[in-house]
Amino acid sequence: MSDLVQRLEAYAETLRSGRPRARPLSPHLKALEAESIHIMREVAAEFERPVMLYSIGKDSSVMLHLAMKAFFPSRPPFPFQHVDTGWKFREMIEFRDALAAALGIELRVHRNPEGVARGIGPFEHGSNLHTQVMKTEALRQAMDAHKYDAAFGGARRDEEKSRAKERVFSFRDSDHGWDPRNQRPELWRTFNTKIRPGESIRVFPLSNWTELDIWQYILEEDIPIVPLYFAKPRPVIEDGGQLLMVDDERFPLNGREPEMRTVRFRTLGCYPLTAAVESPAATLEEIVVEMLTARTSERSGRLIDHDEAGSMEKKKREGYF
């Protein structure tokens, strides 16, 4: 058994056991955790075909962890869906499959078959088209194919400006569109879950968490995350001020030579669209310490946000998560 599999098996065993934690959670994390659990139970009780979108990143790890806790001793009463663009880091896919196996959850993977047939990728077609076809359209395909009426996403309000106004229960019309001017008011903890056939709700149980909360929770709850978050010498190319990792042979080197640098990732997505940061932080503790003194926001490593001002809002209106 590899170290990763061993670690994930131990994690799954801890979750199943319902053992008390050695140290109580920090008060504010306990409050955030209870809020997220409340949201998840509302969805499980009110919707017919809910799904949790699982993107393998740290926020997804936290969301999945919360789902395992929310329904204890039952298992989460919904499947997990990964929208695979075909350009994720190899370590992400390895982690995904090992985690799903250890927890025994139902993980569904969808890749846009048309995009695959047309060979869509970020290097050749640019981040906009790639994201549109392999993420936004792929997600819509998966939603339609399984007739999901509610989908959990791990987005947080602190990530990006247009997310700050997002509701916890975010209504989507039958075309998956989001209308920022016509959102349902959301009062107290009373969520309007009423939809008509074909319509759906995106649910964001981590709305009120910040990046620091996420890291602190991962640390206190001992949640396994993809090793790419930890610093290690990795082959990178410096491109327009960003460090990109050469994860496979599809990376067009154009004569450049990847250099080994000690880097890690603060956020994970498609490898050609996710910049690494130089950092020596090789443990969770070191990451949190680095976070406490960090001077750039995590999405600065996300190349798709920089396309133009208000770009996230545009993508969201079109059905991006």
């Binding site: 309000r157 700050a164 909360d213």
Partner: peptide, 27 residues
Amino acid sequence: LDGLEAEREQGITIDVAYRFFATEKRK
């Protein structure tokens, strides 16, 4: 704080936006 494009152009905030900060004592 003015997150949405349209609002930014109008110079007014038109919805509820949530912001987060923490000190050593509280979130």
